[in-house]
Design a protein around this nucleic acid. Structure first.
Length: 478
RNA sequence: CGAGGCGUAGCUCAGUUUGGUAGAGUGCUUGCUUUGGGAGCAAGAUGCCGCAGGUUCAAGUCCUGUCGCCUCGACCA
């Protein structure tokens, strides 16, 4: 592997200041631009193209699991939001309100949706009468607004893009299966498309979604050792159905409350990609979602035949991958740095010397490795290399997570790790909310999830020493 | 919401202490030479100095107010 040197001076190095590195990458790779409203960003073409690729793949996965897309309104009347007590308490502090239409004050103020459970519930109450109307497996791709105080591009913005699935079922079992099914879809997507390993598990009661009976999550570990909740899937039981008076007639000719789920992921996934794979030269994109998978850079373009050959390769490869030819008059060195910063997985260099030898140079963004490839083998070699980049990224992220995952048996050990070693901490827990509060207060870590893959690290709670049966992942989170 | 920092050219910033013709680097435009790791030379264009008041012969600079952005904390699916 070639030694990777830092070649882009405009990007602050990760070790120096991770937060600044993140902002630099987001700006220099032209993913976003700030606007005059705090927390509301322009997602620029290159950033939006990543989101479009995420959407395309996930939408296909949702359709394959039987879901249909719908579109709800963006306004929720206050009275509707207020119907489910826990839900409104969770969201009311951070909603934006519309109070006027033109110059006239509204009779009832409307909130800009922070999430759409209430709208789906109102709708379900209208369209569901019989067991024959169930299940409804709906999803929507929209934006939502939450008036956050501290904002960061992709990680926490006041308006963000997401998808929210909302399903309703005749039985609790069916709804619970759906919740787990969609969690697995997200985990599959993160690992096989974003090359990002995740921990699957369930949230503690403290971290649960407002109004849910169970919240499932996938948690990823970022480069700086902080956890990022990458997607969630909620089981609602029949709580919302009762609050919104959703009823259906069963085969038994009696009225029943149906059971619901919701699940979502957001443009935060782009932040996860940046902080999982990025390096001091900028963004590193997993091939599956990279807007450009390979860029062709002609060397000594003015020389006879170079540009023709570059164009020939371009048309030959456009069926193989998302390829771009940069024949602008910037210098080759400028282009190298530019596409590295933008995280393009592969770079193909073609110059007079290569043409003589019927070859080209391909450079991997993830490792910096230079590979000479015969022009006759390109169509088979490029997909192989894209796959190799994906696997390389996944392995690197997996190894890093392993090296940053620690175990703690008692409070002193946990505190020491929390203070000195960024990463996940695995530890046993008694199930008591007080211990969770204490660990946050005194060690600065929150519970990330109770993972499906349990280990018995000890028989006692890391905090209070009482008997414990559950292992949790703890950590500092975004 | 608390603490700190910052608003001057597209961008990054100097100039503010001590008031006196609006600056640099980078980017942009044009031409020539270059081209295997952000090329060189030459010429050129670009400013409501965040906004509103005030002091002054004179304000980017001093005073008052205000708006916004960034970072850290608190808060937060």
């Amino acid at each position: 592997m070639a030694q990777q040197k830092k070649m882009v001076e405009e990007i602050t190095s990760m070790d120096e200041d991770f937060a600044k590195w993140y902002t630099d990458v987001v700006k220099k790779a032209e993913l976003i631009e700030y606007t005059s409203v705090k927390g509301c960003m322009v997602i620029r073409p290159y950033g939006y193209a990543i989101w479009e690729n995420i959407q395309k793949t996930l939408d296909t996965m949702f359709k394959k699991t039987g879901h249909e897309n719908v579109c709800m309104p963006m306004f929720i009347p206050e009275s509707l939001l207020n119907k489910e007590k826990d839900h409104v308490e969770g969201f009311a502090p951070e909603v934006a309100w519309v109070t006027h239409g033109g110059n006239e004050k509204l009779e009832e103020r409307l909130c800009v949706r922070p999430t759409s459970e209430t709208l789906f519930c109102e709708h379900y109450a209208n369209i569901i009468q019989s067991y024959r109307d169930l299940p409804k497996l709906y999803n929507q791709w929209v934006s939502v607004v939450r008036w956050e105080k501290t904002t960061r591009p992709f990680l926490r913005s006041r308006e963000f893009l997401w998808q929210e699935g909302h399903t309703i079922h005749a039985t609790s079992e069916e709804a619970q299966e759906e919740t787990i099914r969609m969690l697995n879809v997200y985990a599959d997507f993160c690992e096989n498309y974003l090359a990002m390993p995740v921990v699957k598990g369930v949230k503690t009661e403290k971290e649960r979604f407002a109004g849910a009976e169970d919240t499932y999550t996938i948690e990823a570990l970022m480069h700086d050792g902080k956890a990022l909740q990458s997607a969630t899937s909620h089981f609602f039981g029949d709580g919302f159905a009762k609050a919104f008076n959703i009823l259906y007639s069963g085969k038994d000719n009696k009225q029943h409350h149906p059971f619901q789920t919701s699940w979502g992921c957001t443009t935060r996934l782009i932040g996860a990609i940046i902080m999982t794979h990025g390096d001091d030269n900028g963004l590193v994109l997993p091939p599956a979602v990279a807007p450009v998978q390979m860029v062709i850079i002609p060397i000594a373009m003015h020389k006879e035949g170079v540009l023709d050959k570059a164009n020939e390769l371009y048309s030959k490869l456009s069926d193989v991958c998302r390829v771009k030819l940069d024949d602008s008059d910037n210098s080759p060195g400028w282009k190298f740095a530019e596409y590295e910063m933008k995280g393009v997985p592969l770079r193909l260099e073609i110059g007079p010397k290569d043409i003589e030898n019927n070859q080209c140079v391909i450079v991997r963004r993830d490792s910096g490795e230079k590979i000479f490839v015969s022009l006759d083998e390109l169509e088979t070699k490029v997909p192989e290399l894209l796959k190799a980049v994906h696997d390389g990224l996944y392995q690197k992220a997996y190894d890093r997570r392993a090296s940053m995952t620690f175990t703690a048996k008692d409070f002193a050990e946990l505190k020491d790790i929390a203070d000195n070693k960024p990463g996940f901490i695995k530890a046993m827990w008694c199930g008591d909310r007080a211990c969770e509060d204490k660990l946050k207060e005194e060690a600065g870590v929150t519970s990330r999830c109770i993972p499906f893959e349990q280990e018995n690290l000890s028989d006692t709670c890391v905090c209070c020493g009482k008997p414990a049966t559950k292992m949790l992942y703890w950590g500092k989170a975004y």
